[in-house]
Design a protein around this nucleic acid. Structure first.
Length: 379
DNA sequence: GACTCGTGGTA
DNA sequence: TTACCAAGAGT
């Protein structure tokens, strides 16, 4: 691992910031240093690319112009504004933090990373990003870009997948951060990491800081950063139970104990959940349908006659799970009262007004293609 | 410290 | 299709 002298650090800052002033990106959240703007953008950008965030950010600011608007927003509006961005707990944590700022802090933001980190959804990276950009605190914002950029510049061989490695990078970067322009420094590292020092196809030859890049000089750029790979997603078979009545389709809202909390889907049940009622035998489709029909008749008191929908199951992959969803449909002549099932009837054309996760959109698209063209208007 | 938690893009 | 990546945080 390389070590920089004070002279090298000064030269690096000068080179980096001169490049940033010349070629730094003009992004919607860089119009000013309003902590609300910086905060919303930073949360949206967690594990999400800039080009994906831009339209969401613009719409979000039009919908919730101030932290007070966000704090008092109803959750359906909030989740709809976040639909498609993913990691949906970010949206709920964002509103919780807005309420903290308004109520606990009387609208006055904490101005240090340590203070900001007390707000829900603001962790070690985001606290430092906001503190440096909005309040000028001299702290390193250590995100994926910082890991990648500095692991290459200094040939740091520690595994960035290990939580412990963050502390090392913070210690290494802290004395390098420009004390006069910490926010610009951190954002410059991010711009560098998304242009010349990318993960795939880096263009280090033309990097403005190539003279500081030890891995480039050693022709070992592609070896950094070191990162152990994640396990592949686990396959989980699901059934989507599509129940239609004169009142529309039956939708249910994901609970706080489930992923996709607050979003609406057709009733979903895992295959394993059905097998627990019988034996441990690998159940056939017919057996699963029989089990489901029995459950809906007795537990929910909504008798249904289920039929499989043609075509391949809907496949949807998350970071750690791969869902394979088989579609089952039931058409009811009368609309049952939903006393024992936690859901509501929604007309076909109103479903898309609800906050929906991607997997629900895929299920609706598959249903349309299997003999019900255009009923939801998703294709 | 290891898991959980979304989606879109790219090789 | 598969694998991996992209401005991480909460539990």
């Amino acid at each position: 691992m390389e070590h920089w002298s004070a002279t090298t650090i000064q030269a690096f800052r000068q080179t980096l910031l001169a490049w940033y002033d010349r070629e730094g990106r003009d992004l919607p959240w860089r119009q000013d240093q309003d902590p609300y703007h910086v905060w919303v953008s930073e949360v949206m950008l967690q594990q999400t690319q800039v080009n994906t965030v831009i339209p969401y950010y613009l719409n979000f600011m039009a919908t919730f112009p101030t932290v007070n608007d966000l704090a008092s927003a109803d959750q359906e509006t909030l989740l709809k504004a976040w639909q498609g961005l993913g990691y949906y707990s970010r949206a709920r944590n964002l509103q919780r933090a807005a309420q903290q700022v308004v109520q606990d802090y009387h609208g006055k933001w904490p101005e240090t990373a340590a203070g900001l980190a007390d707000l829900t959804g603001i962790g070690p990276y985001t606290s430092c990003a906001i503190a440096s950009i909005a309040f000028g605190e001299v702290v390193p914002a250590v995100d994926g870009n910082a890991f990648r950029v500095f692991s290459r510049l200094l040939m740091i061989e520690d595994d960035i997948a290990k939580p412990q490695t963050r502390k090392l990078f913070e210690q290494i970067i802290q004395p390098i951060v420009d004390p006069t322009r910490p926010g610009a420094f951190n954002q410059a590292i991010m711009d560098l990491g998304s242009s010349y020092m990318t993960s795939k196809n880096p263009d280090t030859v033309h990097s403005p800081v190539r003279e500081f890049d030890a891995s480039f000089k050693a022709d070992r750029v592609r070896e950094f950063p070191l990162k152990t790979k994640a396990p592949r997603p686990k396959l989980i078979p699901y059934y989507a139970v599509i129940v239609q009545s004169p009142a529309g389709f039956l939708l249910t809202q994901r609970t706080a104990q489930e992923m996709l909390t607050g979003y609406w889907t057709f009733p979903l049940v895992t295959q394993t959940d059905l097998q627990d009622e019988n034996t441990a035998e690998p159940a056939s489709l017919d057996a699963d349908i029989a089990t489901l029909e029995h459950r809906w008749a007795t537990e929910y008191q909504v008798p249904v006659k289920l039929s499989p929908v043609g075509g391949q199951p809907v496949s949807h992959t998350y970071t750690h799970q791969r869902w394979q969803v088989k579609l089952l449909v039931a058409v009811l002549a009368k609309t049952p009262t939903l006393t024992f099932y936690p859901g509501k009837w929604v007309s076909a054309e109103q479903i898309v007004d609800l906050p929906l996760p991607k997997v629900q959109e895929k299920i609706m698209a598959r249903y349309e293609k299997q003999g019900h063209p255009g009923v939801f208007g998703v294709n």
